[in-house]
Design a protein around this nucleic acid. Sequence first.
DNA 1: ATGTTC
Length: 488
Amino acid sequence: MPAGRCGAAPVGYRGHVDLDVVEECPYRFRLERHGAMRVPGTVFASRDLLRDAGQSLRQVANVATLPGIVGASYAMPDIHWGYGFPIGGVAATDVAAGGVVSPGGVGFDISCGVRLLAADCDREALRPVLGAVMDDLGRAVPRGAGPGGVWRLDGTGELERVLRGGSRYAVERGYGVERDLLRCEDGGVVADADVDQVGPRARERGLGQVGSLGSGNHFLEVQAVTEVYDAHAAEAYGIAAGQVCVMIHCGSRGLGHQICSDHVRAMDRAMARYGIEVPDRQLACAPVDSPEGRAYAGAMAAAANYARANRQLLSDAARRVLRRRAGVRLDLVYDVSHNLAKAETYRVDGEPRRLCVHRKGATRAFPPGHPDLPGDLRDAGQPVLVPGTMSTASYVLAGVPGGDALHSACHGAGRVMSRHQAARTVTGAALRARLEDAGIAVRPLSMRGLAEEAPEAYKDVSAVVAASEGAGLCRRVARLEPLGVVKG
DNA sequence: ATGTTC
């Protein structure tokens, strides 16, 4: 979208970052091209959220120096500091023009993402058994640091079937139904996984964690729909006011982490050979069309399938509990990643180009009519699932037509406080008491972990969503609030 | 995020 369309004269804005930031129009700021930047930066945010972005704007500018980058180095309203790339960053490179792929543009938790399931009951019907349901979910959901998962694999042969098959393999083994796959990004499985690029340490770590939540901001929540903004889209997605839902947020555990580490090291060593210089070693990268680039892409796809199998297995665990304890059925609304690089085709200067689109802490948001959407979602657009915090709302959004941010939207509230700072601010016991007083049942594995994820450690997710909608990245469909939380 | 510092 050209700046002139906004109608307002650019307003000079100076935050505490030494960058030229220009407000192009409400919810859209430009980082002027300087030095080695090949493209400008584009940050979608309110003025308040831009202030919260702080030094991570420097990372937006750093990403703009990557070989082959097209359009701009983009940032979503929930931008915050990350490894090399900011979390909330979106960047696309032109594969045929020497464009690079960078593990830092995906993140350590490869294919971390969110899945939403809709129950065939409303919150009042569930209330009498909520405590028992939460107790059972607490027992059924492996979580926390280290090993433990729904599946215990015999050996690397079965791990390779997970790495190649993703959610589809879990469904083939009886952990879900065929319809689930229609409601997963990519049908639940990325085709180009190369298991030979998954190293021995990654395999070792992955073997014992298939079907586990992990820790940090990952969770499984029982939620209720508290508001519907778009009745047409909500109907297409299968959600309605008052309805119970289950939201799952998790990723590829130690396997994805190890793959990221291994391939960052390999690219760091290879960059000089390709004549690539970057302003930050954490931006280690290699041409997509190179041995190192292909190796990472193949390993990343394998980790993406691992994360998807993970979410499929935890969905099955939740379904068993809800059916047994409450006689409730769960239908999959959607499953989408917010940490991934994907090959997508866009018009650049009028010509269709194959791009490598990095989304790190940013959600793909395909508009209505996109050919990759299943038929029953094509009119409404792709569901975009945005988790908030354990005592605030989560949102279901929809992709919208237009916009130039590579069909991307926000992914969450975004941290404002470090884990350490959060744990100093509140004790786990006090937080748990506060949540229980508010009617939210909590099943934490660790009180320290609970405190680190205190709601006050995050930005206001409603402000993030309002800025995302205001910037034309997506539109609101429904708001959900937590009834019960399972945490690592 | 992460066998939470190879």
